[in-house]
Amino acid sequence: MDFPTHAAQVLAQTEVLARELHGAELRTPVPSCPGWTLGMLVRHIGAGHRWAAEVVRTGAALDDTELRVLHGDDSGVLPGDWLVEGAAALAEALLEVGPGVDMWAPFDLDGSTFWARRFANETLVHRADATLAVGLPFTAAPGVLAESLDEWMDLDVQPEHFTITPRKRDLLGPGRAVALEAPGARWFVDLTGEVITWDRGDRRAAVTARGSLADLLLLVYRRVPASAVEVEGDAALLDFWLDHVAFG
């Protein structure tokens, strides 16, 4: 998926969210984000889009305190127009600066390209949170879901995680490998070396989780338990891996 498509996905996924949850009450609990209401989730999404738009416009590392201010007035219904406005502002900022523009980004990743990809996928996952909260099925195009899993893998193998979360090194060891399989797609996570690596290969893993692309995405983001997918092999290793890679 290229840069313009990622930028477009930020807006497209937000528009789907606003349409699917039109009239949803903000006090609705969000089970996949324990302790959150739909209002808290909406404020997080909308503030995140607006914050990222400023990062892209300025290239600077901006204070993100506002993203953590979740409490507010939950007496109304989902503010779809406000959500879409924030997503549109981010998409516009991204397209104005273009891909590969140097600016602040975590792990020194590729500036504007990182932000387009990150917020396309963050918006997708938070749409899943909102959709599931109101009892609707979460669906997206296979290519969108597979790309989101690719991005999750790319972020998870960043070696800086070992400094941020030293316990993640506990994952490494001989014979340790995890595979995720969906119809027509496979991800292989190699935990046997000095760092974590991944590819789309078909090597044998100690444990394999099989399910739909949507279920696998929700699994790695810890939105559903391992029981939501078929597990073959060392189930304890899968649980251990999921416990040590949780983010997002």
Rank of each mutant, 00 (worst) to 15 (best):
residue 56 V to R: 07
residue 212 S to T: 14
residue 86 G to C: 12
residue 11 L to G: 06
residue 50 R to V: 14
residue 33 C to R: 15
residue 85 E to Q: 15
residue 198 W to N: 02
residue 160 E to N: 03
residue 207 V to S: 05
residue 97 V to Y: 03
residue 171 L to S: 04
residue 103 M to R: 14
residue 191 L to I: 10
residue 153 M to Q: 13
residue 110 D to E: 14
residue 52 A to M: 13
residue 154 D to Y: 07
residue 113 T to W: 08
residue 76 G to V: 10
residue 5 T to L: 15
residue 135 G to I: 06
residue 245 V to L: 11
residue 88 A to C: 09
residue 53 A to F: 12
residue 184 G to Y: 12
residue 18 A to E: 06
residue 141 A to E: 15
residue 73 D to R: 10
residue 126 H to A: 13
residue 224 V to R: 09
residue 32 S to P: 03
residue 25 E to F: 11
residue 153 M to R: 06
residue 41 L to C: 08
residue 116 A to T: 07
residue 246 A to D: 05
residue 51 W to I: 10
residue 75 S to N: 03
residue 55 V to N: 14
residue 22 H to I: 00
residue 219 L to I: 04
residue 25 E to S: 12
residue 127 R to F: 02
residue 106 P to W: 03
residue 131 T to C: 07
residue 232 E to L: 08
residue 166 P to W: 02
residue 35 G to A: 08
residue 160 E to D: 13
residue 136 L to C: 04
residue 168 K to V: 06
residue 51 W to M: 08
residue 162 F to G: 00
residue 227 S to F: 09
residue 133 A to S: 09
residue 175 G to F: 01
residue 52 A to G: 13
residue 58 T to N: 09
residue 79 P to Q: 07
residue 87 A to L: 07
residue 37 T to L: 11
residue 230 E to R: 15
residue 64 D to H: 11
residue 222 R to E: 11
residue 130 A to H: 02
residue 133 A to Y: 06
residue 223 R to F: 11
residue 58 T to I: 13
residue 6 H to D: 14
residue 243 D to L: 07
residue 173 G to Q: 10
residue 116 A to R: 08
residue 82 W to P: 01
residue 245 V to G: 03
residue 143 G to D: 14
residue 60 A to C: 10
residue 37 T to C: 05
residue 17 L to N: 10
residue 92 E to Y: 01
residue 87 A to Q: 06
residue 198 W to M: 01
residue 47 A to Y: 02
residue 81 D to T: 15
residue 215 D to N: 08
residue 14 T to P: 03
residue 187 W to V: 07
residue 142 P to I: 06
residue 180 L to A: 08
residue 153 M to T: 06
residue 245 V to W: 01
residue 55 V to Q: 15
residue 35 G to N: 04
residue 124 L to P: 11
residue 208 T to F: 01
residue 120 A to P: 09
residue 182 A to W: 03
residue 194 E to Y: 00
residue 90 L to D: 12
residue 189 V to I: 15
residue 62 L to R: 15
residue 118 R to D: 09
residue 134 V to T: 10
residue 41 L to Y: 05
residue 7 A to M: 12
